[in-house]
């Protein structure tokens, strides 16, 4: 196996882990105005992801950095083509991050309300736009010899929007299941109920996505060539069922599995393309025409294999240390630092 293939896999893994981890942060942000009642519950929603969102977001920075290092052409084409959409994603993520970090730095109700709307708007916009962007990547970007021919509105085609809605619902379910286990009292029970309702909305959208993918994209070609790969979308379905049938941590892990396998389904279907062209396959950005030199990829592989496992260990450790659920009825010592 050559290094370009290894890096295609790692590229997929980085995006997948990012969506699984930030998925529940973004989901919690979208849910906050609907299921939290009163300041102490709104605070609890923010505090439940407070220690983790930043570390989760670094998976995005690493995915971006790895795209740059391993597939510079893909990095250049992806971000300059999707310029305006990406700008909106950045603005949304900045709003979400600042809202979480600054909401508790002032006591006023208006202050906190304002940051909570930024928290909601940023989370919802980022979730939707990530889905729209990946939907368009799955179905192909209008690329030819002269470059990119799309526009911001052109991204809002039916398949792009469908993927956007799919991401929003996946993250909502994931976020609701997170809040069910990481908060306590009435808030936790309300989150568990919300997860069940949102799951009912997710199922038809997920089915529609799997069906539309057959028409709007060439993703299934790889699966028809290697039917064993169908295991991946099947695992997504299993995760979806598990997130409804199980409860507590297991349900949350199942929704994480769903997000991971949906992302993986798309990325496996792309191979060997990173950014397929919808105009002419000759202009697709592939691992062959976008990869860095074997030397660079080898260095990056060593770095990834040495350090990513360490990162996973200490991130898991931080989840363990801070495993206690946030109880809205009990203000805790940590609020002092805020």
């Amino acid at each position: 196996m050559n290094f370009a293939i290894i890096w295609f896999i790692l590229w997929g893994v980085l995006w997948t882990v990012y969506f699984v981890l930030d998925g529940f942060d973004l989901g919690a942000g979208m849910l906050q105005p609907f299921i939290a009642r009163g300041e102490s519950e709104r605070h609890a929603v923010a505090a439940s992801i407070g220690p983790f969102w930043n570390g989760n977001e670094v998976w995005l920075l690493t995915a971006g950095g790895a795209t740059f290092a391993a597939f510079p052409t893909a990095y250049a084409v992806m971000f300059s083509s999707l310029y305006s959409a990406l700008l909106l994603v950045l603005f949304a993520l900045i709003a979400r991050g600042v809202a979480l970090e600054l909401r508790n730095k002032e006591p006023g109700a208006a202050w906190r309300r304002a940051w909570d709307s930024a928290f909601f708007t940023g989370s919802a916009a980022a979730a939707l736009l990530f889905g729209v962007a990946f939907g368009n990547i799955f179905s192909g970007l209008p690329l030819d010899a002269a470059g990119y021919h799309g526009s911001l509105l052109g991204l809002l085609n039916p398949y792009g929007l469908l993927t956007g809605v799919l991401f929003v619902l996946l993250f909502l379910v994931h976020g609701a299941l997170w809040l069910a286990i990481k908060t306590a009292g009435a808030l936790s029970s309300r989150a568990a109920v919300a997860a069940k309702g949102l799951w009912l909305a997710l199922v038809p959208v997920a089915v529609a996505f799997l069906a539309a993918t057959a028409y709007a994209t060439k993703l299934y070609d790889n699966y028809l060539a290697h039917p064993a790969l169908f295991l991946v979308p099947l695992l997504a379905v299993a995760g979806l069922l598990g997130s409804r049938l199980a409860s507590g941590l297991k349900a949350f892990l199942c929704s994480g599995l769903t997000i991971a396998m949906v992302t993986a389904t798309g990325i496996i279907g792309l191979f060997p393309n990173l950014l397929p062209s919808s105009l002419d396959p000759a202009y697709s950005v592939t691992i062959a025409n976008a990869a860095s030199s074997p030397y660079t990829l080898k260095i990056m592989t060593v770095v990834a294999l040495c350090f990513v496992p360490v990162v996973i260990c200490y991130q898991l450790w931080s989840y363990r240390v801070l495993r206690q659920a946030v109880d809205p009825s009990r203000p805790s010592a940590q609020d002092e630092a805020y």
């Binding site: 407070g50 983790f52 801070l322 206690q324 805790s332």
Partner: peptide, 9 residues
């Protein structure tokens, strides 16, 4: 995250 939220943990 550990520093902010870990005072009592």
């Amino acid at each position: 995250g550990l520093w902010i939220f870990g005072w009592d943990k």
